[in-house]
Design a protein around this nucleic acid. Structure first.
Lengths: 196, 196, 196, 196
DNA sequence: CATGAATGAGTTTTCATTCAT
DNA sequence: TATGAATGAAAACTCATTCAT
């Protein structure tokens, strides 16, 4: 009667519980600082169960990384208004990134903390940073139109993304509150940082 | 002839070698991912020797943290031209920070990676972020004088520091080259980001 | 139509598949080196199914041992020509043993490798070695008739069985080929080894 | 004062204790049936200590195998009277093998039980069986001189070595006592088994 | 002072066995 | 009856720390 996909204990429930628990603990204590049985405990499963879903602790962290990186990219780039003006493009990207971070704060923290870690495998590294690629394309266009400052496009991108991350970190650490105004102000700062 | 306590290369040589080795390894592999004997090997000392200088692995990482945080603060704030105009203050801070990071790239990476880690002790957390405090003071003053954008001063600070870190990370990861022009451009972006 | 208990392929098919798979794996990797799920995989049954036929992994290895030991004894001793001359008795025993080993090479290897293992239970140990008992009886008789060398009968038996096993091992390891001539020559050697 | 080599706790004492303990346990319970901490307990060292001397459990079993195989070969072949008559050659080989087995019963059992095991590495397999090579050479010579039976030399060798192993196993299992007479009788049986 | 061999607690991982389906 | 997902006890192995030299 109940469709299988709506059953909360359906296929994948344990896998999700493990991923959730691992995300929390890897953010709190780091990869090497987190013992597999601790993940199992928090997920409410036996220690051996983790190895039915992930070949190793490394496979688990990589699955988490690829999932999170894919999810933020998809959220930001889905139906992206490619033809909009640069100011509007910044607004869309900034707003969508902020939405995703607010909805998935731990996943964002996880991505930041595990960026370029030695236990990430080739697949994780190979996930081209689609956000970066997109951003670069638009920056180059807008530089051509003299709308943005000239110079290496990577510098402008590093500044905007850096500022975004700085704001998110300030929020985790309780130094600023992420209100709509704060976000809008931050976005405007970034626009003025890069416009010609 | 030379009194042992006054010979800087003799007395502190091993301690320095241990700190250097630990800095490298903690950046490469993280705190929990680095074995104490590995630090000893890279430092060229016996494993037991580390415990003559540091009570524990945690004490070592905290010493490193406090040393690095103190060093960058001192480099930036020493003889700080408190009375200069806001644009000049940003220039001094940005330039000195960049100088220190270029001279101590691993130490800066270490500070970024180990920020707020669970194994940092009270002393490490208690190092008030003097840079932050200074910056906040000037931002508030300049906001009062309508030179900077209004709003929470922490937002402006998060944006500028975030952009700085973003630029440094882009440099480690080879996406931008840290030339004097790049740095000057980045600084100018930040100024335009925050000025009223 | 066919009563289930009399259908040899239906009723015992899974049990046989499990025994066959276990025989292969125990020979390849040893008892402790073989995982129960690996046996299930090779047998083409579920892991839980094994426990419907055998109470434990130990029960499985013991069933295998007793089956193999019983089978070789039966093959050799069935309708044994008790009254034949010693030379003829050796021929019958040697020939039948060789037949069985050629037909059941893995079972013979299994018996050799698991002889006196700590996980064999009392029943397995208690299977009096009927071949041994028979052989001893004939050796003692033939010694009495001055046809075989005098001395402890167990020495002669150990030599003949040892030589037989040596030949079989040389065959597994590819050092000799088990042709009818080879077997006949080996038998003749053994006869000359023990005759008075 | 005391020369280091005569100090019972000198270099290697722990390594020897580990090898001895492992030899006993591998014979009693097999490779996979023996836990590393059990070896450590019996050797009177900490579990971690084993890994200071051997890279892994596999490295330990291989060291043991190579040591034992080398020792028996050396004992038998050292100063071998190459020019003696075949009957004398058999006597020397048989007697020396028996001496070594009586002095090192567990090591011989170990070699028999771990022969061709899957966890032996290339080096262990590569130890050419020098005894075999020697024996084959003499058998071929003696066959040329019509002193031994003709046919594949490997068959005669398999029979003699098989008989020897059979006798040793009968002794471990308490079926025969290894007196000088028993050994001499066994040797004579083997001679009559193979002579032309 | 400096060392590095030694250790046992803790880590990742495997596996015999159970049990809900 | 048959299954295979789940498990926890136990395996191999690592490493922070100590201490005899």
């Amino acid at each position: 009667m109940t469709p299988p996909t709506s059953n909360p204990t359906a296929t994948g429930a344990k896998r999700e519980a493990i991923l959730d628990a691992a995300l929390e603990l890897f953010v709190e204590r780091g990869f090497h600082g987190t013992a597999v049985p601790a993940v199992a405990d928090r997920a409410g499963v036996g220690a051996g169960t983790i190895y039915r879903y992930f070949a190793s602790k490394e496979a688990l962290v990589n699955a988490l990384y690829q999932q999170a990186k894919g999810a933020i990219s998809e959220h930001v780039l889905d139906d992206f208004p490619t033809d909009a003006a640069p100011r509007e493009l910044l607004n869309v990207m900034w707003t969508r990134m902020a939405q995703w971070v607010i909805a998935n704060p731990r996943a964002f923290a996880f991505l930041e903390l595990h960026h370029h870690a030695s236990y990430l495998d080739e697949d994780s590294r190979a996930i081209e940073d689609r956000l970066f690629g997109f951003a670069r394309m638009f920056v180059v266009q807008a530089q051509g139109a003299r709308i943005l400052k000239s110079g290496q496009p990577e510098v402008l991108i590093a500044i905007v993304f850096g500022a975004f991350v700085g704001l998110m970190r300030a929020s985790w650490e309780g130094r600023v509150e992420l209100t709509p105004e704060t976000l809008r102000d931050g976005e405007q700062c970034c626009w003025e940082a890069i416009r010609a």
